[in-house]
Design a protein around this nucleic acid. Structure first.
Lengths: 193, 193
DNA sequence: CGCGCGATTGAGTAATTTCAAATCTAGTGG
DNA sequence: CCACTAGATTTGAAATTACTCAATCGCGCG
């Protein structure tokens, strides 16, 4: 079993790489481990890296002026996470990225990412496809907000990611769904009927 | 003034192309003109093309089981629009794309897009960057939904796209903001206070 | 003048929020 | 095994917000 086996598998879902190429590419990633509740990115940080999740679960949160948290994204195994706004545009982070479990990440800097994309046309392709599917996923979420009521959104979320229910508290799910934890709690009751 | 001048300018915001290269690339686009209220894409269509907007304004709408319309995206000059879900995954369209004004579009087929991306590394780069900024824009909208109330979302929308207020009816803005047109109307009153 | 469409207003209802209090649960130390 | 605590979850009640449905208004156009 290879060192960055899950990264390799992840890339090979979309592109083909020789052993040498993969070795070279993966040499630009560095391992980062954090414990539950530690923060990977804090508000106002300069965000140099994007992170491939080998293991664990994280959230990207925006904290509003009343101190209320809103979750923009979860990331579990084989997903990517960062404050993309900050990463792409070299502005200060407005999101925080926090570990919901102990995590193992592979960090890739912006400059290395762009360098690798220049060197390997296939990587440019890979990240284009990834960006497209990220866009579709977000659009799907947006549509869920526009079309469905809270209860349906909750059920759709759990049916799509059953493991979330085990891995995070309900307050966190509420912060993702955009409702108060009290309302979410009351929905749980209704569901049984 | 060149034929596809605005497309050229649009590409040159991110990449450099020789005159010959641009000629070749733009030969894969074909012009499509539609009148106000005509539909570019209908539900259940197979979506072969993505469209660059030369002129005019369109909406991408999802119609729910009660017949209520929800607007996922507007597209004005120099934006791209299609049902991306359908375009990328070769499934039937779940969105309709309708002209809110007379429009002039440049259509690019999926196969030509992929072909051009293979032939020109810079185009792969271009569409990767476009996908990234599209993702950021959608993320911003998602965040607005999570964080702000209806009134703030309305004001933020108008401050970002002042021309929308002139170009579309309030019912349509309501369908984008995710509120009923009555509620939006009552907000207009409050704003004056 | 009158039609038609979008926008507004009113009234009643439904959903969600807030704040506070009560309950449950898992982990810790005696 | 029990008591205790901190955090998460649930519940209650009042206040807010938005929705629906129906009626009305305003205005451009034939």
């Amino acid at each position: 079993m290879e060192k960055n086996a899950n990264l390799k598998t992840h890339l090979e879902e979309l592109i083909q790489l020789s052993e040498t190429e993969f070795k070279y590419i993966s040499s630009h990633f560095h391992l980062k481990t954090l414990k539950k509740n530690q923060s990977l990115i804090q508000v106002d940080d300069s965000v140099e890296h994007t992170y491939f999740v080998k293991k664990g679960l994280l959230k990207a949160v925006y904290t509003d002026e009343n101190g209320k948290e809103h979750i923009l994204q979860f990331a579990m195994e084989n997903w990517w996470i960062t404050d993309y706004q900050s990463y792409f545009t070299k502005t200060k982070a407005i999101l925080a990225v926090i570990c919901l479990e102990n995590v193992e990440l592979l960090a890739l800097s912006y400059n290395d990412r762009e360098k690798l994309c220049r060197e390997f046309h296939s990587l440019d392709f890979f990240f284009r496809k990834k960006a497209n599917s990220g866009y579709l996923a977000l659009q799907k979420r947006m549509l869920m907000f526009l079309v469905y009521d809270t209860k349906s959104r909750y059920e759709l979320l759990l049916s799509q990611y059953p493991s979330l229910y085990q891995r995070v508290s309900k307050s966190i799910i509420a912060a993702y769904l955009g409702v108060s934890r009290e309302t979410l709690s009351r929905l749980d009751k209704k569901k049984v009927l």
